[in-house]
Design a binder for these strands. Structure first.
Lengths: 147, 147
DNA sequence: ATAGGTGCAAAGCATTTGCCGCGGT
DNA sequence: ACCGCGGCAAATGCTTTGCACCTAT
């Protein structure tokens, strides 16, 4: 079946090759923030006819098309997630590497005000929180986004 | 004369070589956020007996010692600034690349609250705002702002 | 038919490191 | 004197690219 991201590609008139379809599917199915290596691994599982260079090219194309967002959580490799309509931010658990997403209207508002005070219009912002779980015993059963 | 950062090195018992003294001086004098290439350029102007590998090593050492902070403003190269006692954040002018520093107590408080809501203690955070300078017409309309 | 995509290997870029002679303490 | 430091060039890790072939439209 046609994945969500494949549909977006078609809307934008991108040529749909087998490889792109596979990458689109892998991304559509991902609920984490995989790096290129990991995308390549997942894509290869579905179709060995794919090279890592193509994954790089595809991921870049999708980003340019606004289909994908590139993230940098440190560690020197880019991580990707499908674009969503509402902005959200990330908190990284420094013990497990797990990434928690959150939204916060007040946050964005405050950033706009701060930029405004400095004489700027806020165009975009990059924010990552790094934190440690408060009660590690209670919630230690969750880890899927390890980097 | 002994630069501010050289003094910090001595306090920490680091061996003070000529090269380290030069890098310490360049950093002490910097009011911007130079990358390694730029530090190398400035250091070379004071003393040609320095290789870029040493700048890399020194900058890394200083960072490990808490003397320096590494920043990532995008563009793929690390940028450095001497550590300061109070946290501050950066707004990057997307047209000129110029970096504006600011502090904001409310911001840090909000981040703590957000992390807390998610069940985390905030350990650190990374934030960069990207903005565009409001044009002069817009600024005149607002009458007073601290550009 | 043809513009553009793909694989492969080589190149690129920022950064690190092995080796070995040199310099600070 | 000793251990660590610095220069150089080679190595590294992620990402991009040149080239020749292939495929979606």
């Amino acid at each position: 079946m046609e994945s969500r991201i494949e549909r977006l590609c078609i809307e934008r008139g991108l040529k749909m090759t087998g490889q792109r379809r596979v990458v689109a599917r892998v991304l559509s199915d991902a609920s984490d923030h995989p790096d290129v290596e990991e995308l390549y691994r997942r894509a290869s599982a579905l179709d060995q006819n794919i090279s890592i260079a193509t994954v790089y090219r595809t991921v870049r194309l999708f980003e340019e098309q606004g289909i994908l967002e590139r993230r940098d959580f440190g560690g020197g490799r880019a991580r990707y997630e499908p674009s969503e309509d509402h902005h959200h931010y990330h908190l990284i658990d420094i013990d497990t590497g797990k990434v928690i997403e959150f939204e916060d209207a007040e946050l964005e508002e405050l950033m706009k005000v701060i930029a405004g005070r400095l004489g700027f219009d806020l165009v975009s912002l990059r924010l990552e929180l790094f934190g440690r779980r408060r009660d590690s015993r209670a919630r230690e059963r969750t880890a899927s986004d390890g980097a």
